[in-house]
Design a protein around this nucleic acid. Structure first.
Length: 496
RNA sequence: CGGGAUAUAGUUCAGCCCGGUUAGAAUGCCUGCUUUGGGAGCAGGAGGUCGUGAGUUCGAAUCUCGCUAUCCCGACCA
């Protein structure tokens, strides 16, 4: 460990810092397949907690989990015109169902006689297969609403990939609901947005802006796309979740009608909503520092690590005898504690390693503490440590975890507020956008203007906020590019 | 898909220009001793068909050509 290499500092190369951190913190690594990652146990443990927390919240909204097939008949995808347009260029296609020994040599080749009658698409999203199924489930208004979610993998053949942020295969959940009325569907799409925002802020400690996507950024096949947008430490925006009001588009494409109370056939109204392993990227880029990952306690697989410092076995025994009851009490409070008494590495190594892995609270006890009845408590978010007495240590740690959770949220919110500013002229915009952050600007509401801004600056409208951002009162004005009337300021940023 | 680069030990890389016994280093791994309050030290050990296919040559990690893969920049990306 003599030549231990530190992470590349964020200030030097943010992108490099991110890539190194993901690998060194043991979250994920590149696989043998281009663009597809291996999520390692430590990273997957975080994802599992994300899943559990979200799943619980979904179920509170009446959602039930189900599972639909990985493969979608090619013809399904093209039923909804905009939908296929949006996804066609990044689909993986299954064309054959059998291999055979290579007649000319070693190995196997695709058996040309095993060509599929109709090609199958590996799902990039499941609206089509689900709506073809819902057709069979729905005949009366009494069958509605249907509120289904599935946790699964999807595949989008991206040209360039980055661990967690954009991978060819990724894990996500996709909710698909069917409703009798437009109002109910719209409300539900909004409700799920609130669920996502609440989860992001309370569990992940990531402040988000709730908003509506402009037509350019809307989901392929949706009438309206709601989203939560987060700001990363480099000032770029990251879409952390979306909830779509699909109108009757998919019901019409798949002929899903129900008989109403009035005995009339009507098309079903739909929503879909999802978050993915991209949230892991958001988590990393919101909180972490040059020493490694910083995890919010609510998500940390290990919330508290205890490192005994000992010279010989008898000393370790004495330390553990003192600490075991405390550790049991912490566990009884539901706190995830890990004891690292291994002699594989020195305490110094362990300290650095648990910092790299983002463990919120570290406890250390050695010979000195044993004599004085104290313990060292170190917190990851501030990198500070103090030596305290053992009295009431459990409550102290319990409180500290909540304090850290609140602190990193506040830190991220302060950062976002400090990097959100109003810009009024396009000249100023072109200059300011290069500095990063969210720019609140007036826009005339046309796709043409948004397109021009994107061409000039790479910035896009991240969302039209649903509420005022802290410190900014939204009022009508004039588009910064065309001077035409604008209903209110929208959020511009350069996005991941 | 355009431009650039790379491919040698688990990992990061040196060696290649100028071909020549047994391909090196660091780190990681294994064993032993000593250590342990911020990334320990010493000694010993295991580990490589040099991406792949052909060519040149008495001889190729090294030179030539093809192929493949990966990375970076761009284009693309709800």
């Amino acid at each position: 460990m003599a030549n231990f290499q530190k992470l590349t500092p964020r200030s030097e190369d943010y992108s490099k810092w991110y890539n190194e951190l993901v690998v060194k913190a043991d979250l994920a690594e590149q696989s043998a397949v281009r663009g597809c990652m291996v999520i390692k146990p430590y990273g997957y443990a975080i994802w599992e907690t994300i899943q559990q927390e979200l799943d619980r919240r979904f179920k509170q909204q009446g959602v039930k989990n189900a599972y639909f097939p990985l493969l979608i008949p090619k013809s399904f995808l093209s039923r909804e015109a905009e939908h296929v347009e949006g996804f066609a260029k990044e689909c993986a296609v299954v064309t054959h169902h059998r291999l055979m020994n290579d007649p000319n040599g070693k190995g196997v080749v695709v058996d040309p006689n095993a060509k599929l009658e109709e090609e199958l698409i590996i799902r990039p999203t499941s609206e089509t297969i689900i709506w073809s199924t819902y057709k069979n489930w729905i005949s009366s208004y009494r069958d509605l609403p249907i509120l289904c979610n599935q946790w699964c993998n999807v595949m989008r053949w991206e040209m360039r990939t980055r661990l967690f942020l954009r991978t060819a295969e990724f894990l996500w959940q996709e909710g698909h609901t069917a409703h009798a009325t437009k109002e109910e569907a719209e409300d539900y799409a909004r409700t799920m947005l609130d669920v996502y925002a609440d989860f992001a802020e309370k569990v992940m400690a990531i402040p988000v802006v709730k908003g509506v996507k402009s037509p350019n950024e809307r989901f392929a096949g949706a009438l309206n796309t709601y989203c939560i947008e987060a700001m990363m430490q480099d000032g770029k925006a990251l879409q952390a979740g979306t909830s779509h009001f699909l109108g009757q588009n998919f019901a019409k494409s798949f002929d899903v009608q129900f008989l109403s109370k009035e005995n009339k056939y009507e098309y079903v109204w739909a929503t879909s909503w999802g978050v993915s392993t991209r949230l892991m990227g958001a988590l990393i880029m919101t909180h972490s520092d040059d020493n490694g990952l910083v995890l919010p306690p609510h998500l940390a697989p290990i919330q508290v690590v205890f490192v005994p410092i000992f010279k010989e076995q008898s000393q370790l025994d004495a330390i553990l005898a003192k600490m075991n009851p405390i550790i049991d009490n912490l566990k009884a409070k539901g706190i995830r504690v890990q004891v690292d008494a291994s002699d594989k590495s020195t305490p110094g190594f362990k300290f650095a390693d648990y910092e790299l892995k983002g463990v919120p609270v570290r406890l250390a006890m050695g010979g000195r503490d044993l004599e004085s009845g104290t313990i060292e408590v170190a917190r990851r978010d501030t990198l500070t440590k103090e030596t305290v007495t053992l009295e009431g240590i459990e409550e102290r740690i319990e409180g500290l975890l909540e304090e850290i959770q609140a602190n990193i949220y506040k830190k991220a919110l302060d950062f976002r507020i400090a990097n959100t500013r109003e810009v009024n002229s396009y000249e100023e915009f072109k200059e300011e956008i290069q500095k990063g952050g969210f720019l609140l600007c007036h826009w005339d509401g046309t796709p043409e203007t948004e397109e021009k801004i994107k061409e000039d600056t790479k910035a896009t409208i991240r969302c039209i906020p649903l509420a005022d951002l802290p410190g900014h009162k939204n009022e009508p004005g004039k588009c910064m590019v065309t001077g035409k009337p604008s209903a209110g300021r929208v959020v511009f940023a350069i996005a991941y």
